[in-house]
Design a binder for these strands. Structure first.
Lengths: 92, 92
DNA sequence: TTGACATATGAAAGTTCAATCATATAAAAT
DNA sequence: ATTTTATATGATTGAACTTTCATATGTCAA
């Protein structure tokens, strides 16, 4: 039962369009918050809130460099999950 | 953009504990609505509503036999996605 | 040390979604 | 035909989630 809860949680973090757009961008590399805002036309607050959720679920890593904070996908796992889902969607 | 929307939708259908419990049960075979209710201790209405969502997203198939309606996982795709997510959770 | 820029975060507002209730439809049994 | 059993579904309520607004925190430059 706890296993199913965890699985639902895994799917949930990827189930929001804003978060998925951020993840999609991060497949291209590391970006700071501003970059993400500009590229995706999102408010800074929205992005920071979603990045916090992604961080809490170990989807992204955080690195501060001066005033900027850079985010990147945590590991290949994340990339794999995203790519797999994307390719599954293509097939339909 | 439409691709990302579709991907989010795919993740969303798997992101609810009740739906995931139903999917988990259906990995064992075909069950009618009542069976699902009994096995998972859920109300008939709850189960029917969730089965409708799963049907709309092509996760399950429906087969009527007399008064009963039997549901099963639509294809191996669904099984693959679920198994993959589960095994990913195990690793953490 | 003050001002400017970047990010984070609490609270309120807005939105989506699941469970429940009531009821409709469908099939079989009497 | 009517009752019983199984399933589906519209409407409502309540909870969970996302966005926005306002503001706080952190870093650098002047």
């Amino acid at each position: 039962m706890a296993r199913i809860d965890e699985t639902a949680k895994l799917f949930k973090i990827y189930s929001d369009v804003t978060r998925l757009r951020i993840i999609d961008l991060l497949t291209q590399g590391e970006f700071c918050v501003q970059d993400i805002c500009r590229r995706l036309s999102l408010q800074q607050s929205t992005v920071s809130h979603q990045l916090k959720l992604l961080r809490d679920e170990n989807v992204v890593t955080r690195r501060r460099d001066g005033k900027n904070v850079y985010y990147a996908l945590k590991d290949e796992h994340v990339r794999t999950i995203y790519e797999m889902a994307r390719s599954h969607v293509e097939e339909c």
